[in-house]
Amino acid sequence: MQTLIHQFWQLTFSGVAQGFIYVLISLGYTMVYGVLRMINFANSEIFMFGTFATVVVSRDLLGYGSDSQPIHGFTLIWSLALALVVSMIVSGVVALLVELIAYRRLRSRGTNRLAPLISAIGMSIVLSESMRLLTASRSVGSPRLLAKTSLAEIGGANIRVDQLMVVIVAPIMFFVLQWFVNSTRLGKGIRAVSMNEETAKLMGINLNRVISATFLIGGLMTGASAFFFETVYENTKYNIGFNLGLAAFTAAVLGGIGNIRGAFFGGLALGLLETYASAVLGSQWKPVTVFIVLVIVLLFRPNGIFGEAVQQTRV
């Protein structure tokens, strides 16, 4: 407890940075669930492909090596932006493939709800094992593009540039997504399908197009989180998405799965909870604490903290 009191702001800053990574991954789960009422079990592998995309861009496309010095100025901004965009595109494309292969044909044939669930798990395993074979199961390090410079110390919290980037850019992406879902034609279509699929179809909404768009948007957000993760931790491997995906799924359920605002608060709450629990009880108690809190929340709020209450932001 002494650590929590004395290091509160440092822990909070780290927890918020980690929380925003969860927010973006949990959007991938929540978007798909909101529309299909099914969990996209392959989202963790969509994340994993995003992390490898960041590595490939910085290492192979831009030619930076493990001993390269961090870059600065316009080159840095351009390189990071390229890595971010490519990661988002790669994850988005993988998400689209998952929808096409694991969901669409089964949905068009009117199979029961379990079949796409299993096919999504199958896709998850295929993606993960393919990467395992490609990398011989080894961790892959990412070149350091962004120096881990400390910008300031606020209340004892060391504000590091890479974590600050996550804290600033991730919420911007979240609010852009929220605007998109609330205000654009396609976003309204997504919300309509989310509320009532049959009625939406009768109103002339192209169901397949909306579902594909939902997977794509979820994938783009997951890809962005993969970029942020890789920039902060500079390390990935074929099963990197498993633990993070589980955490993000937990965050989505905590906030209210299917609810964009729920994913936001669930992700942040989980990031902070994990950090505080590690500080007070020890890191080995982190998962235990998180799931005890999740169970308690669900006992009182079975649909998560936000549940179905915020209709206008539900996808």
């Binding site: 290091q7 950090t275 080995q284």
Partner: peptide, 22 residues
């Protein structure tokens, strides 16, 4: 003293590190 998840090589260790620095 602390213990971390050794099976996850990309684990966020910020809480442990904060304690070490503290």
């Amino acid at each position: 003293a602390d213990a971390v998840d050794g099976t996850n090589a990309a684990l966020d260790l910020s809480a442990v590190i904060t304690k070490i620095k503290g």
